[in-house]
Amino acid sequence: MRKETTVNRPIGRAARSDQARIARFDRRSAFKAFACSLLLACGMSAGEVHAAGGVAASDQGAGHRVNIRIVAGSTTMAATMDDNPTARDFVTQLPVTLTLRDLDSAEKVSGALPRRLTEAGAPARDAGSQGEIAYYAPWGNIAFYRGQGPDAAGVITIGRITSGIEAVNQQGQLTVTISRAD
């Protein structure tokens, strides 16, 4: 009976470094997938997971600006969302219908959104300006600026109206339906 023997031959330096790099990549990818799943299971939004360094399936549009359509009666406004976690989180709630009311001469505001948006990476305060769309974190609502707004804590700019702004200049309540344009 003959015994089989194996000869351990040293692998070349390049092959060893490739194997080590692949092993590190596989471990990192597996950990990242596990961490993203855990964060989503704990109730974080896709935007918050993305901001934490993961990429969730619902964040597929991240990395570019999203065009939206805002319909108010027979008037259609066009807007472009900013590329930030709060704006991306808002896009995940579309389509949405909101009733806007006059807050002051500078803005129309909605009631609370169906779900609060992430504030990850947002500035502590901002002042909206004409044509901007912002999330007001303390109230969990959206503001459409028709003039210069006050500098306030919790204002996060999420987009800009590119056409049809005259619709938000009307006085009184306004019902709008917001959806993706692309």
Rank of each mutant, 00 (worst) to 15 (best):
V66C: 14
A106D: 11
A52L: 10
A72I: 07
I133R: 00
A127W: 09
P95E: 11
V168Q: 04
S58I: 11
I156K: 03
A122Y: 02
A124Q: 14
A56Q: 11
I156W: 02
D102C: 05
D102W: 00
P123E: 08
P123F: 07
S129D: 14
N67V: 11
S58L: 13
I142Y: 00
R101W: 00
A167R: 03
V91Q: 09
F144P: 01
V168E: 02
V71Y: 05
V96A: 01
M81W: 04
G53P: 07
A143S: 15
Q170L: 11
G140Y: 02
T92S: 15
L117E: 13
V91R: 05
Q148N: 13
H50Y: 11
A122G: 01
S129A: 15
V168H: 01
F90K: 04
I68S: 07
T157F: 02
L113E: 07
G140M: 02
G128R: 13
A122Q: 02
G131W: 02
T86Q: 02
W139V: 00
Q60M: 14
A87T: 03
D151H: 05
D83W: 07
T99F: 02
V91W: 08
D126T: 14
V109N: 05
G63I: 15
L103T: 05
Y135H: 15
P114H: 04
D89C: 12
M81S: 08
I158C: 05
L117A: 14
Y136T: 03
L113A: 09
R65V: 14
D83Y: 07
A72P: 04
L94T: 13
D83V: 12
I133W: 00
R69H: 09
A78W: 00
P138C: 05
G121V: 07
R115V: 12
I133V: 10
V96K: 01
V96P: 04
M81K: 04
S110C: 07
I158N: 02
V55Y: 12
T86I: 03
A51L: 06
I158H: 04
R146C: 10
H50V: 10
I68N: 01
V66T: 14
I70C: 01
V55Q: 15
R160L: 12
G111Y: 07
H64V: 12
S74T: 15
S110H: 03
Q130I: 09
L94I: 13
V55P: 06
I70N: 01
A137E: 05
G128Y: 11
D59A: 15
R116V: 13
S58T: 15
S74F: 08
G121K: 06
R116L: 15
A152L: 10
Q170T: 05
A122R: 03
S163H: 07
